[in-house]
Simulated assay, not measured.
Amino acid sequence: MMHKVLIDCDPGHDDATAILYAARHLDLVGVTTVYGNQSVDKTTANALSILTLLGLDIPVARGCDRPLNGIFRHGGDVHGKTGIDGAELPAPARGPVDAHAVDFIIDTAKQHRGELVLCPIGPFTNVALALRKEPQLARWLRGISVMGGTTQIGNTTPVAEFNVWSDPEAADIVFRSDIPLWMVGLNVTRKVGLCEQDVARLSEGGRVARVFGGLFGFFRNQLREIHGLDTASLHDPCALVPFIAPDLITYRQAPVEIELGQGPARGMTVCDFRNLTTRKLENIKPRAPANCSVAVEVEDRALVEHILAAILGWPDHAPAAAAVPSPV
C-alpha cells in the first residue's frame, strides 16, 4: 500500500524537489508551509507555483510566519530573494485553503488515523503548535520523518542546522513527542547532491526538468560561494527515503536532545551514540532511551540517480487533476 504523506515545508529548492519526489512515489495528501527559506508569504507562493508546474491538485495550507520565540530570520542568503531563485515558475493556478496549517495537520491526521506520515522539512513551528493544540495527534500519526539537525558540523552555526536552529523550542517539542521519529541531517544530506553534470542533464530535459535545472544551477552556485561545496544538496527529499527506497539510507537508534540555551550551541542536535553498558557509574551520565532513528550512512549516488529519475521522468503537460506517474 502506498504511504500517505503530508509535507510541512518552506520552499526552497530542495523542498520543491521533495514535493515532486513525494508525489512521484507516495500518496501526497497535502502541503503545509512555514517561514524559513523566505517569509511564509513567499514560501506559500512557491509551493503553489511548484504544484502548478507539476500539474498537481493538492491542497496547500499557509502556516506560521515566525518561531515560537518570535525572532524570525530567513534563509534568503542561500535560497535568494524569492526563496527559490534560479528559474521562472508559473503563477499559482489556485490559492491556499482557508485552514491554517496547524489545523490542517490536525484534521488530516485525524482523517487518516494510523496511516499518515508527517514530514517537516522546514522549521518545526507548525508541527509543534499542532502537537500542543491536539493531544491526540501523537496517537493519530504513523510517524514523523524530519530533515533537520546533524551529527556533525552545522550550516547556520558550527553545530546547528538551519531548520532546528530557526526554532529550537519547536524542534524540542517534536523530538519529545514519543511519536516514531526519523531524522536525516546534514551529515547525510550533504553527501546527496547534484554535480555540474547532473544539472546539465536536467537543463537538457523536458520543461519541468529544465526548470529544476535552472533552480539547481543557482542553488549549486550559492552553496559553492557560501559553504565551499561542489554540489547542490538534495537535503529535503532525503526525509522521504524511508518510505520510498529504504535501503538507500542506514539509520541508527539513538536518544536525541535539542540544545535550548542561548550560547553558541543553541539549536544543536545532541545525538548520543555511546555504547554504554547498564552499569551505574558516578561521573558518566547514563544513556537515555532512544527516541529517534538517526540517519548515519547513505548510498549517495544511487539516491541522486533515483531523485533525478523522478524529475527527468515527470510529464511536461500533466493536467491539474491528473494522476501522477506510477512508480517504477
Rank of each mutant, 00 (worst) to 15 (best):
M1W: 07
H3D: 11
K4C: 08
V5R: 06
C9T: 14
P11C: 09
G12N: 03
G12A: 09
A18K: 01
L20Q: 02
Y21A: 01
Y21F: 13
R24F: 04
L28P: 01
L28I: 01
V29T: 00
T33F: 02
T33C: 04
V34F: 09
Y35S: 02
Y35K: 03
N37Y: 15
K42M: 11
T43I: 06
A45T: 13
L48D: 05
T52I: 08
T52C: 08
G55K: 11
G55N: 08
D57N: 15
I58D: 06
A61I: 03
A61Q: 03
R62I: 00
C64L: 15
R66C: 12
R66I: 04
P67W: 08
N69P: 05
N69R: 11
G70I: 05
G76Q: 14
I84C: 15
D85I: 08
L89G: 09
G95C: 07
A99G: 00
A101Q: 09
I105Y: 11
I106S: 03
T108D: 03
K110W: 10
Q111N: 03
H112S: 03
H112M: 01
H112L: 06
R113H: 12
G114D: 12
L118R: 07
F124D: 02
T125E: 05
A128T: 05
A128L: 10
A130F: 09
R132C: 00
K133T: 10
E134I: 12
E134L: 12
P135S: 01
G143M: 03
I144V: 14
S145E: 04
G148F: 05
G149S: 13
I153V: 13
T156W: 14
F162H: 15
D172W: 12
I173Y: 01
F175T: 01
F175E: 01
D178W: 08
L181C: 11
W182M: 12
W182G: 11
G185C: 05
G185I: 04
L186N: 15
N187H: 13
R190C: 00
R190G: 01
V192H: 09
G193H: 07
L194P: 09
C195Y: 00
V199G: 03
E204P: 10
G205C: 04
R210I: 08
R210Q: 15
R210C: 10
G213S: 03
G214R: 09
F216H: 13
G217I: 00
I226S: 02
I226D: 03
G228C: 09
L229Y: 11
S233F: 02
S233E: 07
S233P: 07
L234G: 07
L240Y: 02
F243L: 14
I244Y: 11
P246Y: 07
L248W: 06
T250F: 00
Y251M: 08
P255R: 02
I258T: 11
I258N: 10
I258R: 10
E259H: 15
Q262H: 15
Q262K: 15
G263Y: 07
R266K: 14
G267R: 06
M268K: 14
M268N: 09
T269K: 08
F273Q: 11
F273P: 09
N275C: 12
L276V: 07
T278H: 14
P286V: 06
R287C: 12
C292W: 05
C292I: 04
A295Y: 06
A295F: 05
V296E: 10
E297F: 00
E299N: 12
D300E: 13
D300R: 14
R301T: 07
L308E: 05
A310R: 00
A310M: 00
I311A: 05
A318F: 01
A320P: 02
A323Y: 11
V328I: 04
